[in-house]
């Protein structure tokens, strides 16, 4: 059976660490790092494999730093 799997790519140098994406993600796929980027903000990273490519994080991101990929994959 085919499943929908997604992936996100975050432009960490543009991320301002507002955490709005974390509140909107239904699968808790995004979390903040302890490290900071070039501007001194903590940035968002993907922390698990549950992403389905629903685009919620990308749509609420005020700076538009998230690119979303989505594909059908066959379950192993």
């Amino acid at each position: 059976m085919a499943k929908i799997k997604g992936d996100i790519v975050i432009n960490v140098e543009r991320c301002k660490g507002c955490e709005v994406c974390i509140a909107s993600c239904p699968f808790s796929t995004i979390a903040m790092t302890k490290e900071v980027n070039g501007k001194g903000y903590h940035y968002a990273v993907k922390v698990n494999d549950d992403c389905t490519g629903c685009m919620n994080c990308a749509i609420v991101c005020p700076d538009g730093v998230i690119t979303v990929y989505r594909a059908k994959v066959m379950a192993e």
């Binding site: 975050i10 990273v45 993907k46 494999d49 538009g64 730093v65 979303v68 990929y69 594909a71």
Partner: peptide
């Protein structure tokens, strides 16, 4: 940490569903 969960087989141009507008 990010590389650990990167799905390179999904991360292709034809699978983009959302990106920042030009």
């Amino acid at each position: 940490m990010e590389e650990q969960f990167a799905k390179l087989d999904i991360r292709k141009n034809e699978n983009i569903v959302y990106k920042r507008t030009d």
